[in-house]
Design a protein around this nucleic acid. Structure first.
Lengths: 240, 240
DNA sequence: TCGGTTTAGTTGTCTATACCACTAGTATAT
DNA sequence: ATATACTAGTGGTATAGACAACTAAACCGA
């Protein structure tokens, strides 16, 4: 597992080893990992080297330490990352509301030129187009249209599209999600939106376009959402 | 400078020492700091302890390393931080527009209960209230009202309030800025806003409330901005 | 002048050890 | 029963030393 003669630094090998244990499920959320001294003994390496590996994993968010208790596995990245970049579901839960959604349509269509450009694919490439009404505590909150390239995320169905797309991608396709970009603007409800959201035509709407990217920079999802401005406010914290 | 008997960890003392050297200007951008061995020799501490201090400063963005060359001072925080958390001025510049602003009023008033609560000060404590119209390429873009506690940022005048508040705080008051929180909602222009922004009453407005915090968590600025929705869109990228 | 070699100095990795502060459970004394 | 003290185990801090990898400049020979 650890090769002392490899040009790859030992601490880095140990990092990979622990990460793999986490990702394979051998170590689950809040499980204690072996103590620093145990690792040192097991692999016949110095405790300081073990600490270097663990330090990095703590900084990357895989682990957390508790003085006098041990070192533990952090919650999955998808969950912790989406603190500022939450999905609707997690966003609502964090606000103490119960989210639900109503599927309006689920189609597989050729991408028009605009969508193709934003998803960085060729025109007429297949994309899933999923329209939903998002509800919080049963009341309509937003109208959402998602576009997902079939080539990148194959196998979506009406059923599994209701699960977390992020989780599906990370677990079933073992791709990593790295970045998302949001554009937020104010708008006015049109006839159709007003109807779906149960508001007056001309009422203010918070219009959010989110593009999410894989680790290699490929966009895998484009979501356009119209939120009722009287019920939703976008909150955003920047640290450091 | 370094007190080995202090309960404060040595590496932490050294961090503070180096930071202070940077902030006082003794070390400037891209200056090499003393080598790890020099620090160890100078303060009679172990090189590994020096490395712990420097590692932290690298992670915090104060320094960068180059193998075989040395360790150097990074560019100022204010410049690198405000990538996602830009001021209006920087935001416009990054969009290729020329920002300007028109001061509508500059007052020192007692905080009402709502402002006091948001700035975490007592009711009737003095705050600066600064109203501006923000322009891009000469055209009105946003109406902005800033509230700043006098106790925390003393010495503001009509003149220096036109400079970057962040820079003023970091350089003149040597306080560090750590965090900002924004709430973004959609709204409709009222009579007054419509007039100042040269739009129709009832036109959509992107209303942003930003609270900025010092390193210790004290809020030092509350800014309420109304952006013309037809000209401004809030863009926001999240990494990792 | 050009190109390779040496050398001094830098950060990067790693070891072996020590003591401290903290946690949680166990044993003990009241 | 209830505090109190102890103890084993954990991460946190610190030391002194070693060699590797890399950089830049000085040096030297063709």
């Amino acid at each position: 597992m650890i090769n002392k003669n490899s040009p790859i630094p030992i601490y880095y090998q140990l990092e990979a080893y622990i990460k793999q244990q986490i990702e394979s499920g051998d170590l689950k959320e809040d499980d204690a990992i072996p103590s620093e001294r145990e690792f040192a003994e097991k692999f016949q390496i110095s405790r300081m080297t073990v600490r270097q590996a663990i330090n990095n994993l703590v900084l990357e968010g895989y682990l957390y330490r508790q003085k006098g208790r041990g070192t533990f596995v952090n919650k999955k990245k998808v969950e912790q990352e989406l603190q500022g970049m939450t999905s609707f579901t997690e966003d609502m839960v964090s606000r103490g509301m119960t989210p639900s959604s109503k599927l309006l349509s689920f189609d597989r269509i050729p991408a028009d030129s605009k969508i193709a450009e934003e998803l960085f694919i060729a025109e007429n490439d297949s994309v899933y187009k999923i329209k939903r009404i998002r509800l919080a505590d049963g009341a309509p909150m937003a109208l959402e249209t998602a576009y997902i390239p079939v080539r990148i995320v194959p196998g979506l169905t009406e059923e599994n599209s209701n699960q977390s797309l992020y989780r599906y991608i990370e677990e079933n396709l073992s791709l990593s999600i790295s970045e998302a970009r949001q554009e937020i603007e104010a708008s006015i409800a049109g006839v159709k939106e007003a109807e779906d959201l149960a508001i007056e035509e001309g009422a203010p709407i918070l219009f959010i376009v989110r593009t999410s990217y894989l680790g290699d920079g490929t966009p895998f999802e484009l979501v356009k959402s119209s939120f009722r401005a009287d019920r939703y406010r976008f909150v955003h914290t920047m640290k450091r």
